[in-house]
Amino acid sequence: MPNPPLISPHLLQGLPPVVAKDARVLVLGSMPGTASLQAGQYYAHRQNRFWPFMGELVGADPVLSYAQRLNRLGAAGIALWDVLACCERDGSLDTAIRTDTAVANDFAGFFDKYPAIGTVLFNGAKAEQCFQRFVAPQLRGATPVLRRLPSTSPANAATSATAKLAAWREALQAAGVSGLITSV
């Protein structure tokens, strides 16, 4: 009997999309970090700024339960997903993703199912790079507006939290997100 194939201990499976039928904006990461995969929740690392930003921008505050935060995002027309369905990575850093093992999610099917999505916001450079490499060449027809934002990861210390929040606020305003909290 042949030996079973070796499976890498670093092969990671992403999370399913979180999306309401009428979502207009899709926020894409590259692949969830270790804390997110263990929790089964997007942006679960306590130092990641995503949920504090969404709290300030659409009321999806980190003090709310995860389900309540997702409901607030959905009410604002914001969906969450990652570019990669699976990949090998040692640790949580995007720089450790082995692109030779990366498999993208099915975006053609996703955009067919959710045609109201008109804007894709990349949470950092790696998400944008992976999308351009693995997804964009396969897309047919009209594509959404694509825009890279500063990563909300604690590993991205080059940009201040204030500047990151301002960039996210402007991008959500440009995308026409409903219920955007405009006061600072």
Results as ranks from 00 to 15, higher is better:
residue 2 P to L: 15
residue 2 P to T: 15
residue 4 P to F: 12
residue 9 P to V: 02
residue 10 H to T: 12
residue 11 L to V: 05
residue 16 P to G: 08
residue 18 V to S: 12
residue 20 A to Y: 04
residue 22 D to C: 06
residue 25 V to S: 01
residue 26 L to Q: 00
residue 27 V to R: 07
residue 31 M to F: 06
residue 32 P to I: 06
residue 33 G to E: 11
residue 38 Q to A: 12
residue 38 Q to K: 13
residue 46 R to A: 08
residue 47 Q to H: 14
residue 48 N to T: 03
residue 50 F to G: 01
residue 52 P to E: 02
residue 53 F to L: 02
residue 54 M to Y: 01
residue 60 A to W: 07
residue 64 L to G: 08
residue 64 L to K: 15
residue 66 Y to T: 03
residue 71 N to D: 12
residue 73 L to A: 05
residue 74 G to E: 15
residue 75 A to M: 09
residue 76 A to L: 00
residue 78 I to R: 11
residue 78 I to W: 08
residue 81 W to F: 13
residue 82 D to A: 00
residue 91 G to N: 06
residue 101 T to N: 04
residue 103 V to Q: 05
residue 105 N to R: 13
residue 106 D to R: 00
residue 108 A to M: 01
residue 109 G to Y: 00
residue 109 G to H: 00
residue 111 F to D: 04
residue 118 G to T: 12
residue 118 G to V: 03
residue 122 F to S: 08
residue 123 N to H: 04
residue 124 G to S: 07
residue 129 Q to L: 15
residue 133 R to T: 04
residue 136 A to I: 03
residue 140 R to Y: 01
residue 140 R to N: 03
residue 141 G to A: 02
residue 141 G to Q: 06
residue 142 A to S: 10
residue 142 A to E: 13
residue 143 T to C: 15
residue 147 R to T: 15
residue 148 R to V: 05
residue 152 T to S: 15
residue 154 P to C: 04
residue 155 A to H: 14
residue 159 T to F: 02
residue 161 A to W: 13
residue 162 T to G: 08
residue 165 L to Q: 10
residue 168 W to Q: 00
residue 169 R to L: 04
residue 172 L to C: 11
residue 173 Q to C: 09
residue 179 G to C: 06
residue 179 G to T: 06
residue 181 I to W: 14
residue 181 I to C: 13
residue 182 T to Y: 07
